Amino acid sequence: MKKLIRVTTVPSSLRSLLKGQHRFMSNHFEVIGVSGDGDALQDVRQNEGIKTHVVEMTRTITPLKDLKATYQLYKFFKKERPFIVHTHTPKAGTLGMLAAKLAKVPHRLHTIAGLPLLEATGKKRVLLDNVEKFTYSCATKILPNSCGLEKIIIDNNYTKPEKLLVIGNGSSNGIDTKHYDASLISEEKKEKLKQELGIGENDLVFIFIGRIVKDKGINELIQAFNRLSKKQHNIKLILVGYKENLLDPLLPETETLITENKQILSVGLQKDIRPYVAISHVLTFPSYREGFPNVVLQCSCMELPCIVSNINGCNEVIEDHVNGLIIPVKNETELEKAMQFMIDFPDKRIAMKQNTRSRIIKRYEQKFVWNELLHYYNSLS
């Protein structure tokens, strides 16, 4: 059986971004997962039934550590002699593609699931642009996980169009539509959670799920919601996710509002987001940049209309006024208007809800995405 090595920078990406895919692919390849160490890597071994290997990588620019990790990857690839090395996440992509090229791995694939560098400026942007081009030059194929991302890559001249391929309709892993089903959450469980969070029977609940960072539009979201909450006392905002204060901190005034506004419910990172989605009415996702947003897929699949930024990925899942609302990026005023619209027009919000789940099942069902990727793997010789 040919070997397939999947590489991510941190183990939680290997566990969550590609959940179920490793086990599926192991019916066709000998699959090995590579990332930094942690409990999540043990979960991958147990849940996916594949071998794993530890190579510590950082998420920031650390030349000596990066050199060491590249050498360790190179040695591992030389020993294992894989047919395919497939990398995800920026640092794993750069180091993994270079190491795989040096080790003469025949097929070197890198999935692009977002471009953090798009928010960088000046010398840092120039450096990151060059790193991106270098990564693509070491790969044999680049797999953007949305059509919008493919266009951004071409517009920035990172590589030639013929080197790019979007799998299926986009998304790195599709969505398990049987898992993300609102009917699986009992009324009893929902009521219990609402009581715990202090959500009233007539409250309209907005939810955000993701990293609680600037790049996800949290500063704008908190300001917009804070103004709304002064006029509307029967609304709540649930924040699900963790902060990254070192990499991408929020403004101090945003932190203050999250703490002081009693209508904002910050619940931290949750292993199972479904109960929180099931007690909500609208996803608010004003992100600055995405590859292909899993959260929008998950919430749509659980019948939530979504307010999203007009960015790649988001505007491929959401059609304005059909299954959600699309707003300009970094526009606090338009975000507030969109949230007000969801409050003022419940009939239109409910009409959008009717167009959510069915669209996801049709275009992004997990098995469809997996089979499309497998089809590509099998086309390689």
Rank of each mutant, 00 (worst) to 15 (best):
Y74S: 05
Q263I: 07
K124F: 03
N371S: 10
K178N: 14
D129L: 07
R363L: 12
I153E: 03
I258Y: 03
E119A: 15
V282N: 08
P90G: 09
E30P: 00
L304K: 07
P11C: 01
K192F: 11
R45Y: 03
K3A: 06
L237D: 09
V282R: 02
D181I: 05
S183W: 06
V267S: 10
Y376K: 11
L102S: 04
W370C: 01
L380F: 11
L297V: 06
R59T: 14
P286V: 02
D37Y: 02
I207L: 05
Q270T: 02
G200W: 03
S186P: 12
E316G: 07
A69W: 01
L17Y: 05
N219L: 02
L149N: 00
L102Q: 08
Y242P: 08
A224Q: 10
M97I: 04
C314W: 02
I153F: 04
H179F: 10
I142R: 04
A92N: 00
L18N: 04
L17P: 00
I264P: 09
R15M: 09
L64W: 14
I112F: 14
T111H: 00
V308Y: 00
T356G: 11
A351H: 14
N157W: 12
L149E: 00
S229P: 06
K51Q: 14
D37G: 06
F206H: 08
A139V: 11
R59G: 11
V54W: 02
V55I: 15
S287I: 08
T52D: 04
I152S: 03
I32C: 07
Q42D: 13
I273F: 09
D129W: 08
N323R: 08
G241E: 08
I32V: 13
M97D: 01
P161T: 13
P328Q: 05
I218C: 01
R125Q: 14
P252Q: 04
T284L: 09
R359L: 11
G49A: 10
Y74M: 13
E244T: 14
L265D: 10
G170K: 05
N157R: 15
Y74K: 09
L17Q: 01
Q21F: 09
A139I: 05
R274D: 06
V55T: 07
L41Y: 02
P144G: 04
E365R: 10
K230H: 13
I167H: 12
L73I: 08
R15L: 15
N169A: 07
K2T: 05
V131W: 08
S12H: 06
K231Y: 11
T111I: 03
V44P: 01
S171M: 05
M57Y: 03
G291N: 08
L18W: 00
E188C: 09
S12E: 04
E196N: 14
P63R: 13
T256G: 09
L247A: 15
C138D: 02
L18R: 01
N378T: 11
K151G: 05
N261C: 10
A99E: 10
